Amino acid sequence: MSKIKVLVVDDSLTMRGLISAALKSDPEIEVVGTAADPIEARAAIKELNPDVLTLDVEMPNMNGLEFLEKIMRLRPMPVVMVSTLTAAGTDVTLAALEIGAVDAVAKPAVASADAFQELIGKVKTAARSRVRARADMPASAAAPTAYRPAANHVLAIGSSTGGVEALLTVLSGFPADCPATVITQHMPATFTSSFAARLDRVCAPKVAEAVDGAPLQQGHIYLAPGGAAHLEVTSGMTPRCRLVASEPVNGHRPSVDVLFESVARLGRPMTGVILTGMGRDGAKGLMAMRDAGARTLGQDEATSVVYGMPRAAFQLGAVERQLPLHRLSPAILELCAHSGARSIA
C-alpha cells in the first residue's frame, strides 16, 4: 500500500519541522516536502504531486486563503488548514472550509510534535476525500414554487467532513418558513457558534446554536453545539431541543445517531437527511427514522467530499433516495411540504 504523500506549507521553519515530525510518526504518511510560502508551494506541488497539503494562513507573498482559492480553482486537491487563525471558531476557518479545505486544526499554544496528533487523522481523512474545482459545482436547483410548509414537520440533518459547504448549499435554498430543522455537524465547540452565525447571515430562516429547552419552531434551524453534549429532540405537544451531556457515540459528541434516534421517537411527520462525512455515524439513527415512517435522503457519492456516512446509511437501507448536493434542497422541501410526501424527481 502506497503512503499518503503530504506537502507541509508554513512560513515558520520550526512549525514546518514540528508538523513534519508529527506526520512522519505515522507509517502510512510520507512528508514529501515543505514550503515556506505559496510561491515555493506552487513549485513543490508541480514537482512532488502530493496527495494532501497542510496549509498555514499567515504567510508572506500571498496569504493562505488566497492561495487556497487558487488551488481549488486551478488544481483541486485535499487541503487541511493549520494555523493560529483557525482556532476559536474564527471566520477564517469557515472561509477556508467554504473555499474547499477538507478540514482545519489549530496550532497548539505550546509547540511540540505531540500536539499535532489530531492532524494525522485529519490528513488520512483528507487523502480519502473527493475535492473538485469550484467551477465544476452546479448551482442549487430552484426550490418548489408551490411549497407550503407543514406546521408539524421536523427535519433532521447530519453531516461531518465537507459539511460546511454542503450545509451552506442546502440551507441557502430554504425559504424563511422552512420546516423546523435540527442539525448535527461534527465540529469542535469553538467553531459551531461562528458557523451558526455564518448560516444565519446567508440563509432566509433563523439559524442559531441549539439551546437546551428551546421549542422547535417553523422557520428556525437549530445547530448542535460542539463538544460537551449531544443534541436530542424531546417528544410532546411542542418538541424541544435537549442537550444531553454523555459519552461520545461513534466517537463523536454531538452524534448524528443520537439526534436521529430521538427524532424517530417523536411520532409526527419527519424527514431525515445524511450528508458528506467520514465513518458510520447517523446510519442506524436514520434507519430508525425510516422504520418510524420518515422520508429519508442521502447525498450521493459524486458530490460528497467523503462518501462515508451516506454510504453506510445507504447500504443499511436507511436512505430512500440518494441525490446530488445541488438537488437536495428542493427535494427536502417537497417532502416537508403541507401537501405531504410526494415522489422525488
Rank of each mutant, 00 (worst) to 15 (best):
G213Y: 09
L266D: 04
A210S: 11
V92E: 00
E261H: 14
I29M: 01
E232W: 05
L74R: 14
L13C: 06
V319A: 02
A126W: 00
F260R: 13
K24W: 00
D291V: 11
I274T: 07
V256G: 11
L119Y: 00
Q299E: 12
V52D: 00
D11T: 05
V80N: 05
S339R: 15
L243M: 13
R201D: 12
M270F: 03
L243A: 12
S235T: 15
A288L: 10
A210K: 09
T145G: 14
S262E: 04
P50L: 08
A109P: 04
A109G: 15
V164A: 14
A197V: 08
G17Y: 11
R311N: 06
A264E: 03
V164H: 10
D257V: 12
P27Y: 04
M62G: 01
R280L: 13
Y222E: 02
S2G: 10
R240G: 08
E165D: 14
I39T: 09
A318Q: 01
P188R: 07
Q117H: 10
P179D: 03
A141S: 15
A106N: 09
A111L: 15
R130S: 15
K24A: 14
A43V: 14
A135W: 01
V207N: 04
V170R: 09
L243Q: 10
A135Q: 13
L199S: 03
G226P: 08
V8E: 03
E334D: 11
A127F: 00
T14E: 06
A141T: 11
A151L: 11
V233W: 14
M1Q: 10
S246C: 14
R268C: 04
A106P: 09
G227K: 14
A204Q: 14
A106R: 08
D114C: 04
T161N: 04
L259I: 03
D114W: 02
T234R: 12
L68N: 01
E58C: 04
